[in-house]
Each structure stands twice: as C-alpha cells, then as structure tokens.
C-alpha cells in the first residue's frame, strides 16, 4: 500500500493522479498507524513552510514522518520540511537532511525571476533514485526557496545558485521538482521510487 501524507499543504490530487497513471491506487491519510503500515509514503507539498510545519507539529505528524522506516519520498515543500531549517517563516524542519533552505536572492542575477518557475535541467551526481538517465533532462519546478547542496545531495539544478534537486539519506528520498508534473521524466522517478 502506498500512502500519501494528508496535511494542509498537499497537492494531493495531482500526486494521486500521477500514481494512478502508473496503475497504483494510493491511500491519502493523516492516520499515523496507516502511514507506519504503508509500503511506501509520499510527502507532497505546496504552500508556505512555517504554516505547514506548524500543522505537522500540532498533529504529531512531524515525529511520525521522521520515524518512518520504509521508503519516503518528499516533494517540493515536503522536501524542504525534511531539512534542518527553512528561512521561509524562519522555522526548524524535520532535520532528516543536513542542510538549510534559503530564499533565492536575485540581486546576484536581476534577470532571474523568483519564483523559479518552469522546466530546468537536472545534473545527477549520484544516480540513486534519479537514475543516470535523468542527467541533463528537464524537470518542472515552482519554488522561491531552495535547499543548499549538502552531503545528502544526489542531483543539483542551477538557478542563480546550484541547489539540491534530489536528496537522499537512508530510507528518505526527496525532489525539489514536481515529478507528478514532469512528464515522462517524472514518471521515471516515481517508478524508480515505487520499485525500491
């Protein structure tokens, strides 16, 4: 059973549709027991970090997610909440990935618009969940904050600065881009995750 974490910052329907296109019927839930029993857990997100984190703390989902043993995939804000700290609302995250989330500073590139929105190339360092085939391919991004590259970074994308596109630590995986909106490239990533 594939579970999608239900909370106040989910783009749950898009992720559900993407999994259904791959023949998987996910369960959308905020029940800790169902999440712990799932074969895999997807932690999506669209929204503002401190509000989302506040919601996770209030419901106790922060500890549930950090304590999961099966493969977990964070997406966008989901990924940022899995980092140590975010400048967005100045909030501490789950601390799974040893990095911090910062706002894009386009004073270094006045031409660069924030949010970073659209398709950008992914540079794969360690194939991992991304696979070598993703190297140089385009994925879809919508975000104003980014995770600095760190020891858990498996792929980067460059926009104003190089930032973490894919993070991985033990059973935790995460993408800054939206695999559910990234066409065939995104489908490959989701398939790789489902095959873990």
């Amino acid at each position: 059973m594939i579970a999608i974490v239900k909370y106040n910052a989910g783009n749950v329907f898009s992720v559900t549709c993407a999994l259904q296109r791959l023949g998987v019927e996910p369960v959308v839930t905020d029940d800790p027991e169902v999440l712990r029993a799932a074969d895999k857990v997807i932690f999506p997100g669209v929204g503002e970090a401190s509000a989302a984190m506040g919601h996770l703390r209030a419901s106790g989902l922060d500890k549930v997610i950090a304590g999961l043993k099966q493969p977990v995939l964070g997406i966008c804000i989901g990924m940022q909440l899995m980092c140590r700290h975010s400048e967005e609302g100045n909030v501490d995250g789950l601390g799974i990935f040893d990095t911090v989330v910062k706002r894009f500073d386009n004073s270094r590139c006045p031409e660069c618009k924030v949010p970073h929105m659209g398709w950008n190339t992914v540079e794969v360092g360690h194939p991992g969940i991304a696979g070598e085939s993703l190297d140089g391919r385009y994925a879809y991004y919508v975000h104003s904050y980014y995770a600095e590259p760190c020891v858990h970074t498996e792929a980067i994308t460059r926009y104003i600065v190089p930032f973490s596109a894919v993070l991985h630590r033990d059973n935790f995986y995460a993408t800054q881009f939206h695999p559910e909106k990234s066409g065939s490239v995104g489908e490959t990533i989701l398939k790789n995750f489902l095959a873990l």
Binding site: C17, A18, Q20, R21, Y140, H178, S182, G183
Partner: peptide, 8 residues
C-alpha cells in the same frame, strides 16, 4: 485533464 495529463 488532471487525471490524463502529466504536465502543469
């Protein structure tokens, strides 16, 4: 559309 299309 959301069900059938994998781009934004």
């Amino acid at each position: 559309v959301a069900q059938g299309v994998s781009i934004p």
